[in-house]
Design a binder for these strands. Structure first.
Length: 467
RNA sequence: GGCCACGUGGCGGAGUGGUUACGCAACGGUCUGCAAAACCGUGCACUCGGGUUCGAUUCCCGACGUGGCCUCCA
């Protein structure tokens, strides 16, 4: 089945044709590194990891370039640096914060089973490209200098009659609407309220770089220009897919698109714009004030990364997802079963049914339904079925450990002494053999009270930790 | 206020103009000393009101409800 993807810009699902099948190119907006990533941040990481894996499967591992940036220049980073390392010069403190946070982020998303992107560029290493784009925009009449700022003018963009897209096309709103609905105080140096910052002067002590366009004081880039620059450097003037959270559509992606299209005189930046929906926690918006703010790190303390991963994929990426412990328990149970059925099977080819489901705009619920089907074939005793099931799970970033390790993880977390359990079970087996069912049931209850569930079969009695 | 998305069985969640989603839970059965697990099977649905149609959960209009964006945000 041909891959089809939904494009936010054209609001349609359409067949995906790479600009260059030998190098399929995707850019996804990555984290701003100032604190632990939260569970909402995990959604694009997982969703676009699945897409990355699908593209690698379809076009070959060596023919897909996935770029996910690291934003390491930002007010929040500066604030955090000053707070956490008050004794250090700000620049050093900032480096500490960004390095530490980036490592935390990597540890977290690795645990979620996400492959590392092909390139993870840092904003601060692409200042030259940003300046270059800004210079081009000023020369082209799309941006202007005012009070040591460089500002982009959407009005100028829309006035230029050329191949350029219309500013506002991605977010589906007109400049008039934006002007009418503006709720922000307009900075005095802006010609129009819709103008946005490409470059601004740095405050004393902040990280800064020589400014473009003849500005004498040092400055720092605006947020939107960073992604235009990094995408350009690593993927070229045009590429295939640009992704991120739905909240980035406006203004971030709208502005990126405007910057890149105007700088390169192009009708587009990416062929497909993809956006994942938001996440709520137990039916409430996640926020620090509600006290339901969950970091990936905290979730990983309670659940294996694969449980979080499966849970995230139970809902289609464009729909909102309600993150609940009930759903997580269900996901955990499903994976327990899948590990039991599939683990340690010899890998065969991944399933076409699963690839087809993903090819339909990443229909992961359909993919999971297909996995349940594969599971049943595998459980019926078909060794080939087991191999196909296992290969498919591995392709999707599951089944990264052995069945024994998976089970042991739960046991370890419970802190239960396996030897003690085994002893109790032999006592129970002995009681059953002499038909002392009162005693055997008593032992069973004792085990249950400890959180241990036993399973009797012809081969003997096994046990596991109840959830 | 402006723009947008969504509303499916007890719960989660796909999809479709007429035919089984899938999973969890529930219920019945097999197995078991009894259970659990496993396996087999069963039931339950498309917010409301109009319209289009031979026929709508699926298309159109409206109402109500939920969520998002418009400001940093995945």
């Amino acid at each position: 089945m041909q891959l089809r993807l939904y494009d936010t810009l054209t609001k349609e699902k359409r067949p995906f044709t790479p600009l260059d099948p030998a190098n399929v190119r995707m850019y996804v907006c990555g984290p701003t590194v100032y604190d632990f990533a939260h569970i909402g941040n995990a959604r694009p990481v997982i969703v676009f990891d699945v897409l990355f894996r699908l593209l690698r499967h379809l076009y070959g591992d060596k023919h897909v370039t996935y770029v996910r940036n690291v934003t390491d220049v930002d007010d929040k980073i500066n604030d955090r640096a000053a707070r956490d390392f008050p004794g250090l010069p700000l620049n050093e403190a900032i480096r500490k914060v960004t390095e530490l946070t980036e490592k935390q982020f990597h540890d977290d998303v690795d645990a979620l089973g996400a492959l590392r992107p092909t390139v993870e560029p840092r904003a601060t290493e692409h200042i030259a490209e940003m300046r270059e784009i800004i210079e081009r925009l000023v020369q082209g009449g799309f941006a202007y200098v005012a009070e040591d700022h460089v500002l982009f003018s959407p009005q100028a963009m829309n006035a230029a009659n050329s191949v350029l897209p219309r500013y506002g096309a991605l977010a589906n709103r007109s400049l008039d609407e934006m002007i009418a609905g503006a709720r922000v105080d307009v900075a005095p140096y802006k010609r129009d309220s819709t103008d946005f910052v490409l470059w601004k002067p740095a405050k004393p002590g902040e990280p800064s770089w020589p400014s473009p366009s003849g500005i004498s004081v040092p400055g720092r880039p605006g947020w939107h220009i960073e992604c235009s620059a990094m995408a350009w450097k690593h993927l070229g003037e045009q590429f295939d897919i640009h992704g991120g959270g739905i909240d980035l559509v406006f203004p971030h992606h709208e502005n990126e698109l405007a910057q890149s299209a105007c700088a390169f005189h192009s009708d587009r930046m990416a062929n497909v714009w993809m956006h994942n929906g938001f996440l709520q926690v137990e039916s409430e918006k996640m926020s620090k004030s509600l006290g339901n703010f969950i970091t990936i790190r905290e979730s990983l303390a309670d659940w294996p990364g694969e449980v979080l991963r499966l849970n995230m994929l139970k809902t289609h990426y464009r729909s909102p997802i309600d993150w609940t412990s009930k759903a997580l328990e269900e996901s955990a149970k499903t994976l327990d079963d899948w590990y039991e059925v599939a683990a340690d099977a010899k890998a065969e080819r991944p399933s076409d049914a699963v690839i087809d489901a993903l090819s339909d705009d990443l229909n992961t619920p359909q993919m999971i339904a297909a996995l349940h089907g594969l599971r049943n074939v595998a459980a019926s005793g078909s060794e080939r079925g087991r191999g196909e099931f296992a290969a498919t799970l591995r392709l999707l970033g599951f089944l990264s450990e052995s069945a024994a390790a998976w089970k042991g993880r739960k046991q370890q977390a419970s802190g239960i002494d396996a030897k003690q359990i085994d002893d109790l079970i032999s006592n129970r087996t002995a009681a059953r053999a002499r038909k002392d069912f009162k005693e055997s049931d008593r032992i069973r209850d004792e085990l249950a009270a400890m959180g241990v569930v036993i399973k009797d079969s012809r081969e003997g009695t096994t046990w596991e930790i109840a959830r």
